[in-house]
Design a protein around this nucleic acid. Structure first.
Length: 118
RNA sequence: CAGCCAGCCGAGACAGUCGCUGCCGAUUAUUCGGUGGAGGAAAGUCCGGGCUCCAAGGGUAAGGUGCCAGGUAACACCUGGGAAGUGUAAACUUACGGAAAGUGCCACAGAGAAUUAGACCACCCGCCUAUGCGGCUGACGCCGCUUCGGCAGGAAAGGGUGAAAAGGUGCGGUAAGAGCGCACCGCGUCAUUGGUAACAAGGGCGGCACGGCAAACCCCACCUGGAGCAAGACCAAAUAGGAGCUUAUCUUGAUUUAUCAAGAAAAGUGCGACCCGCACUUAAGCUCGGGUAGGUCGCUUGAGGUGUUUGGCGACAAACAUCCCAGAUAAAUGACUGUCCACGACAGAACCCGGCUUAUCGGUUGGCUAUUUU
C-alpha cells in the first residue's frame, strides 16, 4: 500500500471545506474531523500546532506515526477527507501509545460513519 | 590520583520486511531499477556579509565599535603581543579611548565627601577658675607640680564612620604635629634607549599638583540608506475593475451670454525615522492591457570539501591534484520484527555563507601542570 500526494489535503480551500462541515471523533490526545469526498480514496491532513507541541522533533514524530497508521488503514477509510489535530498532551506520549490511540480512533470513526449514513 | 587546554565520533550496532523523497535510466502514463537523503549545535536570531527589490537632494537624529599589530569578503569573530587581575602551576578573565572642554552624581553612616575639604573623641601651647600636694613667708599671699572644667588657638600624625578621608613605610624634626626635611616605593614631567605600535627599561627634574563614576550626559576617532526568499522574476482560472495620455477647480465682478479680469485655495499620495523642500493625484474624454486563487523559477557548485607542498610564531594565504556531499513545500529523511551491548543526551535543514551565544549524554585522542610515591 502506497502513500501518494493524492492522499494528502494540500490547499487552504481543501482544509477549509473540511473544517467548515464535518463530523468529529476525539479522545484525550487527538481530534479527528472527517467528511465524505465522493472519491474512492481517502485523503488526510495533519495539524500539529507549535502551540500544543513545542519541540520540532516531537511534532515530526507525531506526524510520522499518524501518517504511517493512515497508510496501513487507508482502504478502510476510502471516500473520506480526514483532518487529524494533535492536542496539547500529545508531545509527552511515546510512539506505541500514540499508534494504539490513532488505530482505536479509526475504528470508532468507521463505526460512526456507517451508522450515520447506512 | 587531582586539574588545565585543544580536538574527534555517535538518530547504539547488525540483519530482514514495508514505506517517503531529489536525481539518473528504462518503461511508458504509472510502475520498475540504480543512487543521494538532517546537526554540532540544523536552535536563539545576537553580530557580519553575499543575493534580491526599493531609495532625487540637503540637514538633523539614531545606533554600533573602542589597548596595539595582523588575519578576513566582513565582523562585536580569530591570531599574536601589551597592560591589569585570579590561580602553587598548566592556564584563565577583562565595554581596556578621554575625567587638564563642559554639565551632573557620590546614598547611608560620619565632625567633614571634592576644590581654601574636615576638629567628634583623643593630642599640644597659652590664659582663667577650682581641687589636692609641696616649697617660701610672721601673715596676706607667691611659686612649682597634679587633676577637673572653661576660653582662644595649633595640629590632618592616632581613634571612630564609610566603598572612598586628599600619597605609603621608616628616620629626623616639633609644644604637639605635618613632604616640614631626607631615603626607598608610588605619582607627575622631560628627554634617551628598545619596540612597526600598544608599551617597557633605566636616568634627570618636581615635594606631590591632577579623587572616583564616561555599563551618567558628553567629547574624540572610525563605521552604518531601508526592507527581507512571505525578497524578487515569470505563467495564469472564476470574480471584480486597473493603468497611461490630454484638458482642468472654486468665488467675485464685467459684459459681447461664453468669454475676459481679479482673488483664493483644500485634501491625499510618494521620497519607509524626522524636518525642510520637491513632485504627482482629485473631474471628463481617449487609448491600452494588468492583478487574485493556483503553478514555475529563485533553490543549491559554494568566500565549498579533502589531500599534498610552500610561506607565516599563528589566525591564515598561495599553488597543484581530486570530489560533488539534502533541497522538501502542510513540508521527505520513517515504521515494525529479531539478536547483542556500556540501554542511547540536546535536539529536525526551509535562500546561502562566516562567527558568537545557549542546550547537551557518553565515549575517545593528544599536549601540559602541581602534589605524593617508587
Amino acid at each position: 500500500m502506497r502513500f501518494n500526494p493524492n492522499n494528502k489535503l494540500i490547499t487552504k480551500a481543501e482544509f477549509k471545506s473540511v473544517f467548515d462541515e464535518s463530523f468529529k471523533v476525539s479522545q484525550k490526545f487527538l481530534t479527528v474531523l472527517y467528511k465524505p469526498n465522493k472519491k474512492n480514496q481517502a485523503r488526510i491532513g495533519l495539524v500539529v500546532a507549535k502551540r500544543s507541541v513545542n519541540s520540532a522533533v516531537a511534532r515530526n514524530q507525531i506526524k510520522r506515526v499518524i501518517r504511517e497508521s493512515f497508510r496501513l488503514n487507508q482502504e478502510k477509510l476510502a471516500g473520506l477527507d480526514i483532518i487529524v489535530i494533535a492536542r496539547q498532551q500529545c508531545g509527552s506520549l511515546d510512539k506505541a501509545t500514540l499508534r494504539e490511540g490513532i488505530e482505536k480512533l479509526w475504528e470508532k470513526l468507521i463505526k460512526q460513519y456507517k451508522h450515520s449514513s447506512p
